[in-house]
Nucleic acid binder design. Structure first.
Length: 508
RNA sequence: GCCGCGUUGGUCAAUCGGCUAAGACGCCUCCCUUUCACGGAGGAAUGACGGGUUCGACUCCCGUACGUGGUACCA
């Protein structure tokens, strides 16, 4: 078999969706697994949907994910250009060839003609009439018009499109790598436009011409493309390239966690989780949509989540590095059914990856999130703190939530824990303990020992003052062991925090 | 409406005719920890429905239901 070549062909119209990244991933894994090539082609044939910056954004996302193509508009390749708008001139000859061989025809119907046709033929039984083998005989095209009139229209530069002439009474079938045998009755397929009035191809023409020209061997795309597969198949036949047609795999959809339907960015906003790989700001509306990266996900975790959303290796393993995925991925084990996205599970994956990182690695990752709160950071100090708190962190911003009190005096959110049961005995205890600070080594164990000594001296139990101490140092009921915190923040700061609260509590 | 595709716990899912139906997330209980988390031990919770085929069906076939996608000069 010839060298494996796959492609991801997004249209640059906005943020890169979870499902899009998964399609990239499966392409990438398949290509690497078979030592093949992964091509990124930009499908920008709809000029009305052009969005500034969207193409660049896609590349940035792939870079963040570590799924970089072997050929693309950015790095070029032997089949350049990789942007369909730049290949515009190429498609006409193939459309023309189809017309000449009788597999396609010119259609001169205006937008109004089409609307008119649809409204005239619309019935309850057929709510969306199609431009098909039945109706094409009633429209203005090179099949119904006399040849000289067609020539005249063409000569006058009358706007036209080229439509595929779908045959009647034919079964189009193929074997999908995921779904097995699939078949369609051509009587139910419409005469799709191949070449638009502006001279641009539609997706249907472009995808087969480019897959052929770029020597694509395996084509993976979302399940939403399955209904148009017969058109593509017929095109491969009519163009005489059938033997070179790639093997198809239609990937299952990623669904909303609640309710039903394809996952959309709106669902993310509604339910509070990201849907795009990275932040996307719409240049027209200025609307910002949050991405997994900015939410604090690690790219390795993000990839792992996506890989398992529709695929598994049949064992109990859930954590896979990219290399393992490349080694173990097989398209046959991809599910047929769509999967609902579960953000809780996604967070669990990220937590797993965070725990597997060394504290050194985490320093660089966490730093920006600490810096956001304008505190000065010392790397070795940060590293120690990370060691203390990382097991309670799931997303990168959690490091601030879980460790802010190491950097600045916390706001006391649960003061009542102290004040509700405050008394002279406790006050004396804390004062006594603070006074002993000068005579002890400032280490975790020494701190704990002196704390215990003070306890017996004041006839108190640990339970009476340990939680109040935590509130004094942390502000709330969370965090690592109090003596570890005290050790880290130092004698002066510890003293300051305690004395401060003694004052406040005594005023009650 | 029509066509395609799908359907194992709340979610992700294993199973390729032998099932007392794995595992993970989430949830609940307990232990650990005088905080939170981590960790540990338990628990509740699944084959859409109806027909076949078969000694035997979650697994194969056929219906039905439900879901989902498509039905554009968008991809």
């Amino acid at each position: 078999m010839s060298k494996v070549r796959v492609r991801f062909a997004p249209s640059p119209t906005g943020g890169l969706h979870l499902g899009g990244v998964r399609t990239v991933l499966y392409n990438y894994l398949f290509a690497r697994h078979h030592s093949g090539e992964f091509v990124l082609r930009i499908e920008d044939t709809d000029q009305s949907r052009y969005v500034e910056g969207a193409e660049e954004y896609i590349f940035d996302c792939l870079k963040w994910c570590g799924l970089e193509p072997d050929e693309s508009v950015q790095i070029g390749g032997p089949y350049a250009p990789y942007r369909q708008s730049e290949r515009k001139g190429l498609y006409f000859q193939y459309a023309k060839q189809l017309v000449d061989t009788g597999y396609a025809y010119y259609a001169f119907d205006t937008q109004a003609d089409l609307e008119d046709m649809r409204s005239r033929h619309k019935t309850d039984a057929n709510p969306t009439p199609q431009y098909d083998h039945k109706l094409r005989t009633q429209m203005r095209n090179s099949l119904t018009l006399p040849p000289n009139e067609v020539e005249q229209l063409l000569a006058n530069n009358t706007p036209y499109v080229i439509r595929i002439k779908i045959p009647e009474n034919t079964i189009v079938e193929f074997d999908d790598m995921i779904r097995g045998h699939v078949q369609f009755d051509t009587n139910l397929v419409d005469d799709k436009v191949l070449l638009k009035a502006d001279g641009m191809p539609t997706y249907h023409l472009a995808v087969v011409v480019d897959d052929y020209l770029m020597k694509i061997t395996h084509a993976f795309r979302g399940e939403e493309w399955l209904p148009s597969a017969p058109v593509h198949l017929l095109l491969w036949k009519y163009l005489g390239w059938y033997n070179d047609m790639p093997k198809w795999a239609h990937l299952p959809l990623i669904l909303k966690p609640d309710g039903h339907g394809k996952l959309s960015k709106r669902d993310g906003e509604r339910l509070g989780f990201p849907v795009f790989a990275m932040n996307w700001k719409d240049p027209k509306s200025g609307e910002l949509t949050q991405g997994f990266r900015e939410r604090g996900f690690l790219p390795e975790a993000f990839i792992n989540i996506l890989a398992l959303l529709g695929w598994n290796d049949g064992t109990e393993q859930e954590i896979f590095s990219l290399d393992e995925l490349i080694q173990k991925f097989s398209i046959e084990r991809v599910h047929k059914g769509g999967a609902k996205f579960d953000f809780e599970k996604a967070k669990w994956f990220n937590h797993q990856y965070l725990q597997r990182k060394t504290n050194e690695e985490l320093v660089g990752l966490v730093k920006p999130y600490i810096a956001e709160h304008s505190v000065s950071i010392d790397d070795s100090y940060l590293k120690k703190i990370i060691g203390l708190i990382k097991e309670r962190c799931t997303l990168l911003p959690d490091f601030w939530e879980q460790g802010h009190f190491f950097f600045k005096t916390p706001e006391i959110k649960e003061l009542s824990v102290i004040t509700d049961k405050w008394n002279e005995q406790k006050k004396a205890f804390f004062e006594g303990w603070v006074n002993s600070f000068n005579s002890i080594d400032w280490t975790h164990d020494a701190l704990e020992n002196s704390f215990n000594e003070q306890l017996t001296a004041h006839s108190l139990k640990k339970g009476d003052v340990l939680l109040p101490l935590r509130i004094m140092l942390v502000g709330g009921k969370y965090g690592p062991g109090v003596f570890a915190i005290a050790e880290m923040i130092g004698k002066e700061e510890t003293k300051k925090r305690i004395i401060n609260i003694i004052k406040r509590a005594s005023e009650y």
